[in-house]
């Protein structure tokens, strides 16, 4: 009886897993088949690359890929700089009002940039950041989450290393660069993976800030391309969607273990 129950449970777990990947599997299958075959689930239909050709010619994808790449790297660079410095100060330096400041920083975990779109748009406009890659990335650079993570990581560095480096003649920045940054490498890796997947996928704020193809990232480009008004058929939409998610999906499948650990490390502390 228990054995039967256990088999049923395993079967259920597998069924849920299949349901979970089915949207992706269907889209991947449809992307390689003619729309009429995809609609009729004609499993014996011939495979074709026609949908990818149509999708690729339908929008400046190369530009979108480039924009997303620039966006993700500039956000990463900004976050690395700001969060490293602030995390170090919060972890290791005695500053007046530090605790109050830290609570203020943590508040940003709840005051999401997504919610403040109305006024952030006004700010971006006044700073001349509208329709620029920097404008998409700027609100996310001083990430409270990143500051929090780096503070936790730096707190675990033994004081002796810090003092040894100071005896050797390192200044505050020297100690940070030579001792703390290398020691926190696993945390950086985790944060990089989380940040890349977040900003590769972000949509609402980029939609608001951009208004030309020279700045639109992939998600916004895809939403315009696949809009019902454009009357693109489902096979072509699938092809475009697969194209957009492929790099991140490949990255995920290759670094799967790291990815999962990254989210764990990022979330658990």
């Amino acid at each position: 009886m228990t054995a039967l129950l256990r088999h049923a449970e395993a079967a259920l777990a597998l069924l849920v897993a299949l349901v979970w990947i089915s949207p992706l599997v269907f889209a991947a299958w449809a992307a390689f088949h003619a729309p009429t075959d995809a609609i009729n689930f004609n499993l014996s239909a011939p495979w074709t690359l026609e949908n990818f050709r149509t999708a690729w010619e339908g929008a400046p994808w190369l530009r979108y890929f480039l924009n997303t790449f620039l966006l993700v790297t500039s956000v990463l660079a900004g976050q690395f700089f700001l969060c490293t410095l602030a995390g170090y100060a919060f972890a290791q330096i005695e500053v007046p009002f530090k605790d109050t400041l830290f609570v203020l920083v943590l508040l940003q975990l709840f005051i999401l940039p997504e919610v403040l779109i109305v006024e952030n748009y006004a700010v971006a406009s006044r700073l001349g950041l509208l329709d620029s890659i920097l404008g998409i990335g700027a609100p996310y650079m001083a990430s409270a989450f990143g500051i929090f993570l780096m503070r936790q990581a730096f707190k675990q560095v033994p004081k002796e290393l810090d003092e040894a480096a100071r005896v050797e003649g390192c200044g505050t920045l020297g100690v940070l660069w030579r001792v703390y940054v290398p020691a926190a490498r696993p945390t950086y890796l985790a944060y990089v993976l989380v940040s890349i997947s977040t900003h590769w996928n972000n949509f609402l704020w980029p939609l608001i800030v951009t208004n030309s193809d020279t700045t639109r990232p992939l998600t916004v480009g895809l939403s315009i391309f696949a809009a019902p008004e454009n009357g693109v058929d489902i096979s072509v939409i699938s092809a475009a969607t697969i194209m957009v998610i492929a790099p991140l999906l490949v990255l995920f499948l290759v670094f799967q273990r790291r990815f999962v650990q990254a989210f764990l490390r990022a979330g658990i502390k």
Binding site: F81, L82, C83, L85, A86, Y88, A89, F90, I93, E94, V95, P96, K98, L101, L104, V105, L107, Q108, I111, P113, L116, V118, E119, N120, A122, V123, L127, A138, P139, M141, A142, A144, I147, T172
Partner: peptide, 28 residues
Amino acid sequence: RRAIHGWLLLTPALAMLATFAFYPSVAT
């Protein structure tokens, strides 16, 4: 001296947070 260093390290992040989180909240 260390407190001043601390403030200098915090300033860039706090300035960005002020621009894109605190000020917009108040302005809202």
